[in-house]
């Protein structure tokens, strides 16, 4: 497992960048000014966080919904506990899956322990993806459901 602890310098950088980098000629320089650090430190610490997996990636984060991927389905699966690690990794690597987590069940009303967010332009393509996931899980999945979002009731930018 990658090292996940962060020091105070990292914390400063995370707080200054979590809502995004400024779109300017020298964004890391601007972050340096904001945090009182120098640019080399900002870039070096970000590089180290990237290597350790604290930063997953640095990149453009498109708004899939605004780009036409309107049928975002949260697929939820009841997967045998002894298979979830092996199978969760397979599902998490699929291109159309943007998040994939093992979470606790709440029995009896909530039997699902694997969550995979699936992106599609319409429900038909999302359902095709879900069928493929069902095929990969095979009889290790005892049941599943797809929960489509119908309304965004609150969304703020900070996600750490």
């Amino acid at each position: 497992m990658p090292e996940t602890t962060v020091n105070n310098i990292d914390r400063l950088i995370i707080l200054a960048t979590q809502a995004g980098l400024p779109v300017t000629r020298e964004p890391y320089h601007d972050i340096a000014l904001r945090t009182g650090l120098d640019q080399d430190t900002v870039m070096e610490r970000m590089k180290m966080m990237l290597e350790r997996g604290v930063i997953r990636r640095i990149g453009v984060v498109p708004n899939h919904y605004r780009l036409g991927y309107r049928a975002n389905g949260m697929s939820v699966w009841d997967v045998r506990d002894d298979r979830i690690d092996e199978l969760g990794k397979k599902i998490g690597a699929l291109e159309y899956v943007s998040h994939c987590y093992h979470r606790p069940r709440y029995l009896p009303e909530w039997p699902y322990n694997l969550f995979a967010m699936v992106h599609g332009r319409d429900r038909e393509s999302t359902e095709q993806h879900v069928k493929q996931i069902a095929g990969l899980l095979g009889d290790a999945a005892r049941g599943y459901d797809i929960l489509y979002s119908t309304r965004i009731l609150k969304k703020t930018g900070l996600r750490i």
Binding site: T4, V6, R11, I14, T17, Q18, A19, G20, L21, V23, T24, R25, M46, M49, L50, G53, V54, I55, R56, R57, I58, G59, V60, V61, P62, N63, R66, L67, G157, R159, I160
Partner: peptide, 28 residues
Amino acid sequence: INKMKELQDRGLISRIGAVFRPNTINAS
């Protein structure tokens, strides 16, 4: 730069920057 700003203003880009691993500096 101008096009990136425009894409952000139009809501097609949420942000440009680091995507942090969940639960690194706090809990969710």
